[in-house]
């Protein structure tokens, strides 16, 4: 064997080992001279010019600052506008406390309902192959694209005085509209897809081999679910719960339509914010709002942590 040198190696400026992306010149000679004239450091083909980078980051930060950070900062300053004492006085008002209790209750009901339904639906969708599956998924995600006001409206039309079951409910002294049941129903409606949509992709990706292994080792269906499937999806489930809870506690439109706005009884925290605000109790309104904002921020932090955790699995 002998090696044959076909062409003499091209002379390249050692300071420019990579071919720069932004150089238009197709001729090597030109590239070489240009590189010699203006020494460049190694440039990634995907790297943008520094001034482009600066402008893009500046625009992004300014846009986010204006539309996202400022409103959040505004909530906090307004809440404490009349001092710490006024802030805590607003939060310990009996009507506000009742609103907090109702919010926690409605959120708890919708989280439990959606976890049970979410796991069951995800099992059916992810572990089996059946026709009509895509339609079923689309129907489950439907509440996302329905206006919250309509979510409230449909329950008024069903259970309200002029609704389909209104007369019957009145005759049997069952209160749904303007009471907890309707608030819970409306909340479940708007949070309906949250848990399922986190579980389905993960469970589909994990397949059925581990379940088959457990079954062939003699485990029952339920044992297989609780000891093999559930541990594999627990972080995604928690993630779904987090999103579901955040939305449930913050839901305004749907709950507003079915609540009846009875102070101290059927007002959730967001509705309490509205009532206080409309009553010109601005500081109190922002105090309750700040509580909700803090909840949102905590949810976001937990979300980032959970996402890191999910990625690791």
């Amino acid at each position: 064997m002998c090696s044959v040198q076909v062409t003499a190696p091209m002379k390249i400026n050692p300071k420019a080992p990579g071919i720069s992306a932004s150089l238009p010149a197709p001729i090597p000679a030109q590239l070489s001279t240009q590189a010699a004239a203006a020494p460049r450091h190694r440039v990634d083909a995907r790297e943008d010019a520094p001034w482009v980078r600066f402008i893009v980051v500046a625009v992004a930060v300014a846009f986010m600052g204006l539309f996202v950070v400022l409103p959040l900062a505004c909530v906090m300053t307004e809440a404490f506008a009349k001092g710490v004492a006024a802030y805590f006085a607003a939060l310990t008002d009996p009507d506000t406390l009742a609103a907090i209790t109702l919010t926690l209750l409605a959120a708890a009901i919708s989280v439990v309902a959606n976890v049970v339904f979410g796991v069951i639906a995800a099992w059916a969708i992810a572990k089996f192959d059946f026709s009509g599956k895509n339609l079923l998924i689309a129907l489950i995600e439907l509440p996302f694209s329905v206006s919250p006001v309509i979510a409230g409206l449909v329950f008024v039309l069903l259970f309200g005085l002029q609704g389909y079951f209104g007369g019957w409910l009145l005759a049997h002294h069952v209160k749904i509209i303007f009471a907890l049941p309707a608030i819970a129903l409306a909340t479940i409606f708007v949070t309906f897809p949250f848990v399922v949509r986190e579980l389905v992709p993960l469970m589909q990706e994990q397949g059925t081999e581990e379940e088959e292994a457990a079954l062939s080792l003699g485990a029952s269906g339920l044992t297989t679910f609780f000891r093999v499937t559930l541990p594999n999806i627990k972080w995604a489930l928690l993630y779904g719960v987090l999103l579901c809870n955040a939305r449930a506690m913050g839901e305004f439109g749907a709950v507003s339509v079915v609540s009846g706005h009875i102070r101290g009884q059927t007002l959730t925290m967001p509705l309490q914010v509205e009532t206080l605000y409309d009553g010109y109790q601005i500081t109190a309104a922002f105090a309750v709002a700040s509580l909700l904002a803090q909840l949102a921020i905590v949810s976001l932090i937990v979300k980032v942590v959970l996402e890191a955790r999910l990625e690791r699995d």
Partner: peptide, 19 residues
């Protein structure tokens, strides 16, 4: 910056409204 993109999702709409 990445994390706060989700704030409009997470912040209850009534809170965003009054803010």
């Amino acid at each position: 910056l990445d994390a706060i993109v989700d704030i409009p999702f997470a912040l209850p709409t009534a809170v965003a409204g009054i803010a």
